[in-house]
Design a protein around this nucleic acid. Sequence first.
DNA 1: CACCGCGCTTGATTTCGATCAAAGTCTGAT
DNA 2: ATCAGACTTTGATCGAAATCAAGCGCGGTG
Lengths: 248, 248
Amino acid sequence: MTLQDAVHTHSDCSNCPIRHRAVCSRCDADELARLDNVKYYRSYEAGQPVIWAGDRMDFVASVVSGIATLTQTMEDGRTQMVGLLLPSDFVGRPGRDTAAYDVVATTDLTMCCFRKKPFEQLMAETPHIGQRLLEMTLDELDAAREWMLLLGRKTAREKIASLISIIARRGTSQKLSEVGGPIVFDLPLTREAMADYLGLTLETVSRQVSALKRDGIIVLEGKRRVTVPDFDRLVEETGDDSDGGMLV
Amino acid sequence: MTLQDAVHTHSDCSNCPIRHRAVCSRCDADELARLDNVKYYRSYEAGQPVIWAGDRMDFVASVVSGIATLTQTMEDGRTQMVGLLLPSDFVGRPGRDTAAYDVVATTDLTMCCFRKKPFEQLMAETPHIGQRLLEMTLDELDAAREWMLLLGRKTAREKIASLISIIARRGTSQKLSEVGGPIVFDLPLTREAMADYLGLTLETVSRQVSALKRDGIIVLEGKRRVTVPDFDRLVEETGDDSDGGMLV
DNA sequence: CACCGCGCTTGATTTCGATCAAAGTCTGAT
DNA sequence: ATCAGACTTTGATCGAAATCAAGCGCGGTG
């Protein structure tokens, strides 16, 4: 099996970037996994915690399906979401054995986990994995910096519009690239989780969602199902310049 | 010259982590540098721009001395700092040839630059460099997430206290680990730059600095020289729990 | 069916930080 | 020494979002 055998696929883990782009392309990793139980799947129900900040964390993982959040909490209870993990996102830090953030499943969630020690060994032996991980980490850092602009300088309305457009971009079934048509999807977050993402209160989130609805930027069916009739109009509300986040 | 020759040093670049920890340890990199002009130094005066977002960026670099900032600007002029580069910090992204942020020298600044193409080749050939870079990027991501908590949930006073404690920790001549004694240093940022860091206005920064002074948390000589008589008291004002940011 | 509990919305009021405005301080140049 | 200009402080007022407080809608359960 060669490095170029890109067509090679596995049944369970079609979203896992480590396995497919880095590990599986050499396949010896699969051997390792089978022999040593390095790799395993774990599922969580919506609302369940995956791990708490400070807990021992002896694995790294990649989200297969569902959504998880990373949050930080101050001792008086104020909380800020600092990561939103969608399918194919990676969590865990090689070289650290304690979780730095609370990780919670906000929808039903399946993760593809690798025991940390052997994974680190694998990384040392397989340059591809490290490179891929660096690339992903740099992407996350860029996302974090975009997020910092949102938290520090955007108005409540801009924050809401930004979040909806992010979810529409990343959380929808791939092909929304054919522009023009309306976009429909379910919000995977409660108002409270949205507030934690945006550095707002849930009341303000609710009010601003209502305002965007009133102004025809979005249409709501029930509380969660969103239709965006004109994506460009939504993007105008974000305050971003029009080529929004396309850093390339 | 062996990989283990850790004592080996070079005259110019004592802070550059790439050169010393990853490149220089093999020394062939130095050969490469000499032959091909891969590595060079560049100095900027306080206030000078290093590069603008969107510009072609054909190098990566490491800060040798001085301080630079990464900032993002919205088209209506609102700006948010998204990175503060202190000596030994790395800037630039392998695999991208356009700057994503404005980089500005806030003090006189010297950087150690590597032309990007050969640097990438070097990375491909030298696993150490990629690993070191991953480690540094993960650290930056953690710092960004800490910063997100600050932007999203802290009060103005907590923000100021946090920034001062960050600068005291990172920006002071190493050994402040001997706790207890007062800490003295110069703020390397104007009130406006502090405001851009914290997601505040410069007036609010000024007021809160005055308030911390009034309350004896800090002592000011002139506008910039700060004395922190009791570091623990400062940390109490940050809202962080006492082991502040010590992720290990 | 009625009752709960949870997530959400909406209204009234308060508050913290932004904005507008003016004056003070330091530095470096003429 | 004086002056210009950048940086900073302080005051007065305003406004966006937080806080406090009901009340709604809906799915699950006794």
